[in-house]
Design a protein around this nucleic acid. Sequence first.
DNA 1: GCCAACGTTGGC
DNA 2: GCCAACGTTGGC
Length: 156
Amino acid sequence: MSYWLMKSEPDEFSIDDLARAPGKSTPWFGVRNYQARNYMRDAMRVGDGVLFYHSSCAVPGIAGIAKVASAAHPDETQFDRKSPYFDPKSSRDSPRWELVDVKLVKKTRLLSLEELRGHPDISDMVVLRRGNRLSITPVTPGEWKFVTELLARDAR
DNA sequence: GCCAACGTTGGC
DNA sequence: GCCAACGTTGGC
């Protein structure tokens, strides 16, 4: 079992959108970065833990807990000419972009980026590193434990 | 809107 | 394969 942090812009797809989605599950569409794709295609397994992160918004941070809910499969938006994620260089025969489905476990309070930076225990998190732009980053078991226990404590 | 950081593209 | 130019991300 592995752990991940996945960024989404809430204006496009928020934790509430995930909660409203059929089965509280969604294909993680729109990733157009090879490293992030490779994590989904090659490294993720059904049941892996996901920290759902809101980026490019007023208060960026972790907004909920989710889990990987499918094996990798092609991102349909790459074939859709009307989609902003359309990729003319991809084809049905050899799809360039793959994704996994992500299912909500629970919405949490917003654990802001600012607050994350204030905890020395998780100061090495990839998402906190200077210049980090990757939309999917690995989370260590220790980081996962710290963050989920922090959120569980606050939920009581 | 700014801009640091970094990924991608394409000429050579 | 190098690397300059360009595009994107994302916090601020």
